[in-house]
Amino acid sequence: MSTETQTGTVDRSIAERLRASPFLSQLLSNRLAITGIVIIVAIVLVAIYARLTYDLSELMATQFGTNPAESPPSSEYLFGTDGQARNIFPRVMYGAWYAVLYGTVTVIASTFLGVSLGIVAAYYGDLTDNVIMRTMDVLLSFPSLLLALALVTIFPEELGLWRAVGALTLVYTPRFARVVRGAALKVLEDEYTDATKALGATDPRLLVRHVLPNCLAPITVQSTLNYGLAIIDIAALSFLGFGASPGEPTWGMMLSNGVEFGLFSGAWWWSFFPGLLLALTVLGFNLLGDGMRDALDPRMRETVD
């Protein structure tokens, strides 16, 4: 009960903050950002539609006899069929669900972990700060895709695509921790945090109710930019053979199979359409993330990684 009211108030204060700041109005006047939002909304709608309409086991099963194999795009098979005679169009639509679901979980998990670590490091300082941030530094010393590749191996194979989610969560966490620690340090310098402490606020209350809301802007930008990256990296891991199980209609898996078995025998549509949707989705998040960054601080343009 009490937690409900608490989040309610936090939500309201965020909404007020957004209205009071020029952030939202600036974002909405940016045509590229609007394009990004339109793309993302469209993909999410496709994802939900596909999830509700199609039966996953049917999409995964081979369809020899029902459909022709490797048939080019036509009015009946909009995106053609693959080597298992499966209709590619509904599979690509369902791929949107995979991308949105797994991308969202990755971003939420790494945001949550990174934000917690970053705020704790900033607030407690000294040894805590050093231990957390040096660990983050070490993780940042690996090229991200390679660290993800190595980390995928620590998860049991039965987890399928969740292995990729787990690995990428660990890879992205340090970026959030770094951004949030920086933002939180600035907030902690402000007088109102001293005032809140003087009023007897407990540490968790101070951090969640006062420090966190004031760090939301950089967190949101980082999350949005990471969304596109998460989707492209999950697909990359699937492409390299780590993640989705064979037959699963993820864009990465379809691309990988399409390139391996279809591309040079002429069935270009097999890998073309999953890749197209993947690129479009990532572009949507990059457009929105860029617009957010510009709206947040024009001088910050393209400097946040």
Partner: peptide
């Protein structure tokens, strides 16, 4: 440039 970073190499 934005399209360039959105298009996966493996596509």
């Amino acid at each position: 440039a934005l399209s360039g970073i959105s298009v996966p190499i493996y596509w």
